[in-house]
Computed example of a mutant assay.
Amino acid sequence: MRVSVPTIPTRLASVPSGPTVSPAVAVERISSFLQHGNVCLLTGAGVSVDSGIRAYRGKDGRYMNPNYKPIFYHELVDGTEKGFAFRQRYWLRSYLGYPPVRDAQPNKTHYAIAALQHASIVPRLITQNVDGLHHKAIRSARSRSWMDEHMLELHGTLHKVHCNRGHLVDRETFQDWISAANPQWKAFVDDLERAGQQPRTNPDGDVAIEDVDYTTFNVPECPTCALEGYTNSVQKPALIFFGESIAKEVRDKSYADIEQCDRLFLVGTTLATFSAFRLLKHALELKKPTLMLNVGPTRADGLPGLEKLEIRSGEVMREIVRNVLGSQATEDPIIRDMLCSGIYMPPPDHIEDIVPQSGS
């Protein structure tokens, strides 16, 4: 299954959001839904907004602009000069946009979800996010092998890069390669950091910059390929691009997670990508109880069998965890610490795109 450019059907996008429920009503209903455990949780970009990462389809989101055109998978991996130009554009923008995602910290919702995971209420987590914040929230309590088994990054991760011959490298190393190959852009990033500024960054680390000569940007080549006698600049982050197929093992695991749970809880997602929407449809076909916590229209609005509550997750998730776990929320030191953790730093309502000076 290939990931296409996500959209919310026009009939939904033009419809005002439903009434927002009160925190007390939301806490009671969601607590009741979760209390028996064995819940699969599916999250989207809305979960990370309080960490400063703007959602694509939220207020001022990029996908709300009909003229926004992302780079497709076939364009990024094209071996011709045209493909190289796409990689110049992608990697310059991603080079600028990665640090804010890298440095983002989990918010209250991430830690509340981590507490539910640690308590085995939510044994399976599927996230559409590529920012790694769910992992940051629980990594002090769970091993990497546990996370690999119980947490699925449906669309991959921004924190690793691989070439088209399979050589994998961590993103920080790749950032260093870009810095070494483009000292003028490294100086620009350093100036931003000294000024306490950051570009307007999307959930996949992309930024919008205008009036820039992308042809001057040097895309690093894969050094392992070079050792093997190949010149290869076809490298991409380990996330799923539009037009790219989700790996069979990821798809199969996502279906298995739905099948093995008793109910499905969806948080902070419009389900605009079919890769996520089909998981909800699968749960409904299996007659699993489903509950959504999201603000604004979604692709699933009006589906029979889906219950939806409109309220921000950050307003209610901590109290929900306390309700569900009872005395464990105060007696378990790990959970107690999680429920006292989490930032609240949503993106400003308006932020101008940072435009480099001519010659940058």
Rank of each mutant, 00 (worst) to 15 (best):
Q260G: 09
R263D: 10
H282N: 07
D257A: 13
T270E: 14
K281M: 02
T270R: 13
F265H: 05
P289S: 13
R278E: 05
T290C: 15
P297M: 13
A283F: 10
I258A: 06
G296W: 06
I258Y: 07
Y255R: 13
G302Y: 03
E285G: 07
H282G: 07
L284F: 04
G302K: 01
R263C: 10
P297Q: 09
G302P: 03
P297E: 13
D301M: 08
S275D: 09
L286N: 05
F274M: 10
L280C: 06
G296Q: 08
A276L: 09
S275F: 03
L286G: 06
L279D: 12
F274W: 02
Y255F: 14
I258K: 09
P289V: 05
G268S: 02
T298N: 15
P289H: 14
F265D: 00
K281Q: 05
G302L: 06
L293K: 04
F277G: 03
V295A: 03
L266F: 15
I258G: 08
L264M: 10
L291F: 00
P289T: 08
L284N: 08
F277W: 04
D301S: 13
N294Y: 05
R299D: 06
D262W: 07
L286E: 07
V267P: 00
L279K: 08
L266W: 08
L264F: 02
H282C: 04
S275M: 09
R278A: 00
K281T: 01
G302E: 06
K288S: 15
A283M: 15
Y255W: 09
L266E: 04
D262I: 04
M292I: 07
T290R: 10
L291W: 05
L303F: 11
T270H: 10
F274Q: 05
R278N: 04
G268I: 03
Q260I: 07
H282K: 12
L279H: 01
L271S: 06
T273S: 15
H282L: 14
A283L: 10
T290A: 14
D262R: 14
F274P: 02
C261V: 11
L271P: 01
A276S: 14
A272N: 07
K287A: 12
L279R: 09
R278G: 02
R299W: 12
P297W: 04
A256T: 13
L266V: 00
L266Q: 07
L293A: 03
V267M: 12
S275Y: 02
G302R: 11
A272Q: 11
N294C: 14
P297Y: 03
D262S: 14
A300G: 13
Q260T: 10
A300P: 09
L280W: 10
Y255S: 15
G268K: 03
F274V: 01
K287D: 15
V267A: 06
F265P: 01
S275I: 01
C261H: 07
L286S: 10
L286W: 04
L291C: 00
I258N: 02
S275P: 04
T270F: 11
N294I: 03
A272P: 09
N294F: 09
E259C: 02
R299Y: 12
G268P: 00
G296D: 07
E259A: 11
K281V: 00
L279V: 00
T269S: 13
T269A: 12
K281D: 01
L291R: 01
